[in-house]
Amino acid sequence: MPKKIGIEAILIILALVVLVTMPWLTQETYVFHILCLIGINIIFAASLNAILNIGELNLAQSAFMGIGAYASTLLVTRVGLSFWFALPLAALITAVISLLIGLLTLRFRGAYFLLFTFLFAELIRILLSNFGISVFGGIPGLTNIPRPSIELGSLIKISFDSKIEFYYLILLITLGSIAILSRIDRSRTGMIFWAISQSESLTESIGIDSMKFKILGVAIGCFFAGVAGSLYAHFVGIITPTDFAVHSVLAPIAYVVVGGMGTVFGPVIGTTFLMVLSHFFLRELGFYELLVYGLIIVGIIRFMPEGLISIPNFIFSRFPEASGSGK
């Protein structure tokens, strides 16, 4: 299918050019603010999708993002680490905590994992709101989280205070994250994740320890949730326990489902589509926006389970001559 890959490559390059040259197209602060949020949400949606790849929905994904956010903030403000060390370290901490949850819950499929993660998300929210207030700040959370900066000697100093500089930072990390997840997806490990989501019993019967791979899948997913959390904390500057409560995982579920579950670019497309829609076109809907999101989730799952990413295939399959050699 050389022709189709060609079109995909052109689209990706086009998108990259637009994204890189964005500051010359507009100087609107609001645009960059939203673009930054879209980037963070793409990483988060992709992390959610990484766990969907092993066939599980993690309702505590926001809580893990929260763990990343709090860990990164505390590493910077309390331990005095620079952001550049705090980000990967916070992501690692998130992944390690997810290992414990994985060991407890992944013995069972579906329902138990879901309910357990639901409980875990509530537990994290309650703990952050009510315990260790001197460290976690209780319900008001943590404020004045510093923006990162780079200092090389005394000459070069880049501070990521402005939206545009932070925009480039987020763009870079988002692209990196997607590249890594896409590499995993195409690897043998990714193939095994996919196999487990289709038939765990068969995966076991051919000698693959599905438990080990499921735990790895959850850890990979939560690592990137931690990355998203750290970026969010340093971008927004304020974090509170409710930012990471169970309900905040709903919109990202919509992003993944709308874009296309189980694909690398599905979450990217879904997040961009829905966030651009809601922040630039549906702003006056206000409260009804959430209702629209809910209806979109139900409608897509019911009528178009493969999401927006299946639209080209849908069109190509109607016009087989357009898709080049086909199979």
């Binding site: 996919w194 196999a195 289709q198 038939s199 019993s201 068969l202 995966t203 076991e204 019967s205 051919i206 000698g207 693959i208 320890d209 599905s210 438990m211």
Partner: peptide, 20 residues
Amino acid sequence: KPNRIARLGAVRTFQLTNVF
């Protein structure tokens, strides 16, 4: 566990069709 038994060399098929 099933995967360990399979790795030792005892490999099964399923009563109901089970493929990826």
